[in-house]
Design a protein around this nucleic acid. Structure first.
Lengths: 199, 199
DNA sequence: AGTCATATGTTCAAACTTGACTAGCAGTCG
DNA sequence: CGACTGCTAGTCAAGTTTGAACATATGACT
């Protein structure tokens, strides 16, 4: 499945474990995950199976509450914890010009990293976006002088640039909020964002 | 396949017809379509088959240049022209908060609509984005007072808002450019953006 | 003349996604 | 009370995407 789906499901199991598919389905739907990450309910079950095959999740047995259907619960393995951090770091330190999903997912699970690393990654993002905008400006210049490229291709780069500026402003704002003590990160006291998974 | 893939392939066949799969593949790769629309080469051939099944494309026979492998060329049917306009209108008049692809694709093929409609659609977009931003502000307020929603969910909405502001600024800018005579639209004279498809 | 990289044009199996479907049970509403 | 709606929990077939693989051909270089 896509990296996004993997990261979301692995991150969510980590947050609510031990947890069964239907709980994740409901929880993630309240996050409107179908809108911002394009993850439909069916994909969650597939991701659980696939991550289990890869050894990042393990089945935790089956429960049944009342006369309800049986359900399989999952938890994250040690390899899964390592993989989760790897994927989060990847999302933190990579700027995708066109794909909006990685940053959204990063934001949802960044609490699993340490405050200092998140701040460093976000500062890197601000700088990196400047570079991408500069690069786009040269592309726009090329399009203007090229005879073979359709003129409106310019607008693709203009749009990407505008959206990057928006993302950069957000990065600056959130750096400010995190620096001033908002949110709780790995290794810090305080209420974890995770609620317990209850049926 | 996804709406995006359909629209890209239908629009590109319309622009270069009669055209074979490998030409589209090369052309679309020069547009970096894999980066901004997540379309890999394999998907293009699938889209051609699928759109043909739906009656929006028709095979135009097979050519072979020299000792090269045979290749099937395609053209857009009348139903396909109608469908292309329908999909473009849909992309023009719909604001997707999280999915960046529809506007990018719209930008690539908007020349197939009329200048006045594109301007009206973009103006609607500017207004609509204001509404979405206002809506996000209420979401952010809810998160702040809710005890069950993790606090960092706020950042998802903040990020979406920032990116929307970027998109809105672009819409304003491009309205200005189109109004001042940039680009050539349906029913107007001048060089069409389409180049001829040549092998 | 041989070799190596690259271009041509497409197919394919494996993986992933989608959205409808199943099937029992709980509440509710006239 | 009977009908109906909606929740629980998940499966599945059909469709889509992916990235590699194929087989030839041309060009460039030694």
């Amino acid at each position: 499945m896509s990296t996004t789906t993997r990261l979301v499901v692995l991150g969510a199991v980590n947050q609510f474990q031990p947890v069964h598919g239907y709980f994740l389905r409901r929880e993630l739907m309240t996050w409107h995950i179908d809108e911002w990450a394009n993850i439909q309910p069916g994909s969650i079950y597939n991701a659980l199976r696939s991550l289990t095959n890869d050894g990042y999740l393990a089945e935790n047995g089956t429960e049944s509450a009342g006369n309800r259907p049986e359900r399989t619960t999952y938890r994250v393995t040690e390899a899964g914890e390592v993989e989760l951090l790897r994927m989060l770091r990847d999302a933190l330190w990579t700027v995708e010009v066109f794909d909006t999903k990685p940053v959204m997912v990063l934001t949802s699970f960044m609490y699993a990293l340490q405050r200092e690393e998140v701040l460093a990654g976000l500062e890197h993002r601000v700088t990196e976006i400047d570079a991408r905008i500069a690069s786009n400006a040269y592309h726009i210049g090329d399009v203007a002088t090229s005879t073979s490229t359709p003129a409106y291709v310019r607008e693709i780069f203009e749009l990407a640039t505008s959206r990057l500026r928006g993302e950069q402003q957000w990065a600056r704002d959130v750096i400010g909020r995190i620096r001033s003590g908002d949110y709780v990160f790995a290794g810090e006291d305080g209420d974890r964002p995770a609620r317990r998974a209850t049926s």
